[in-house]
Design a protein around this nucleic acid. Structure first.
Length: 203
DNA sequence: ATGTCGATTTGCT
DNA sequence: GCAAATCGACATA
């Protein structure tokens, strides 16, 4: 099953995180390669970044938390939300240009039993990995992996040739950013149409 | 120093 | 449908 190739850094090194978010649909997140690892396909992603994006953590400038967003493209930005949930982002854009893509939903491919154990839900339950705060639990993504390299670190992103056509790609406004003024209306949330592992809309 | 709110999820009513 | 859980960033003083 080694047809999958790790995405090169050039994939992430684009000015526009929206393009990267769209292209991340269908790609594979792999954790703990080797021993009892797990892998899942990305089915939902949201872009953040740019000077006009008030919803982005980087909008007010550099802080200890959002430091990763200014870092090397192709690294991880993992932060704590509501004091509880770990959120996994992919850093994009050239260094010192803050941008990232939040992974909001993935479909289990390998290690589903392990994910179910971590989540304490049956393996058949879509709640296993549908949602940004829960997929990090299922995949075992840790805060210490903030700023690690997605090309050769503990989390890797692979391409196994699966392509999501534009017809299959659903485009909607982002979630939970109502405070962000005009940026709240940016349609920067992308998902695979009809896929059950897409996070449930609460609005 | 103190208070508010957030790129959310869950369980209880 | 609502509120709790819980911590860092930011605004206000």
């Amino acid at each position: 099953m080694s047809l999958a190739k790790i995405l090169p850094r050039s994939f992430y090194e684009r000015e526009n995180p929206v393009e990267v978010a769209i292209d991340l649909l269908g790609k594979i997140v792999r954790v703990d390669q080797g021993r009892g690892g797990c892998a899942a396909r990305i089915v939902e992603a949201e872009a953040y970044g740019g000077l006009k994006d008030r919803a982005s953590h980087a909008w007010r400038g550099r802080t200890p938390r959002n430091e990763s967003m200014f870092g090397r493209p192709g690294t991880a930005y993992i932060y704590l939300c509501y004091g509880i949930h770990r959120m996994f982002n992919v850093v994009t854009a050239p260094k010192d240009v803050p941008a990232a893509v939040l992974i909001r939903g993935v479909e289990p491919i390998e290690g589903r039993a392990l994910m179910a154990r971590r989540r304490k839900w049956p393996p058949s339950d879509f709640r296993l990995t549908a949602g940004p705060g829960v997929l990090t639990v299922a995949l075992g993504i840790r805060m210490e992996w903030d700023r690690t390299d997605l090309v050769c670190g503990p989390i890797r992103i692979e391409d196994d040739g699966v392509r999501i056509s534009s017809a299959q790609t659903q485009r909607r406004p982002r979630v939970g950013v109502n405070y962000a003024g005009p940026a709240a209306e940016f349609r920067w949330r992308f998902s695979v149409r009809g896929n059950p592992w897409v996070s449930r809309s609460r609005s």
